[in-house]
Amino acid sequence: MTEQCVHLLDYFNRSLTEEELLAFEHHLEECPSCSAELEELNLLTEDLPYLADEIEVPSTLKAKVFAAIDEQPASVVNDSKPFSTNVEEFPQPKKVIQPRKRKGPLVPVLAAALVASLMTNAYLATMDDSAPTEVAESDLQLIGKALLDPQPGADNATAVAMMIKDNNETVLLVDASNLPKLKDNELYQVWVIDKETPQPAGSFKPTVDGNGSVTHPMDQLKGDWDTVAITIETEPNLPSPKGSIVLAGNI
């Protein structure tokens, strides 16, 4: 027991002055007894947070947090996977990347290619009911993920499609950014394509910044589809696309 050891509780409760803190942190490295006691305190208190009553979260909190995040400087390079733009027609979008599920562990290979603002405001479009909020319970797994390829005329657009499994339910989540502006009567429609047969997989209106996202239950999608595309339509969920394709990619 040294003079420093008496500071353990105040270190745990962060009531040391800066000078005391530095001295104690130095001491902690050299005092096995204090290290052990600190670890014990952490263990003995680990259940206590769960004494908190469940408090309803303010509905605006998530938007505030994500707005604060968007003010942070981006630290991800967004040109590490240059998109090609020479796809000619709808049913044969250019293959850009392989499905994530074939790449082994969930190392952030694709994540590095996502622009930092990819999910910007996605939560705004989906906060109420649909979308990621439905899929975050315990056994959640990301089972497939792919970037979509921007098509001519939408060169700056980016999107990611993810298949997310949560217990028994699997959903397709598509999230897009930098989308071209739409006319008032237009919307973005997500499709999945099995060879040449498209089927609708959710539609959305983008935010003013050109971002948007949508989820769709996988069990409503039939066939062995391997392509995801986004088109501009004037009506949601048509039997087949009528408008122009903005993004597409294989998953």
Binding site: A52, E54, P108, A116
Partner: peptide, 28 residues
């Protein structure tokens, strides 16, 4: 791990999972 690599969707899922617990605990 995904969120740390700036995967926003993974981060959002973590956020959704823990928002209520963290808020409730912070309030406590």
């Amino acid at each position: 791990a995904l969120a740390a690599a700036k995967d926003r969707s993974a981060f959002e899922l973590l956020y959704d999972r823990y928002e209520k617990l963290i808020f409730s605990f912070a309030y406590r």
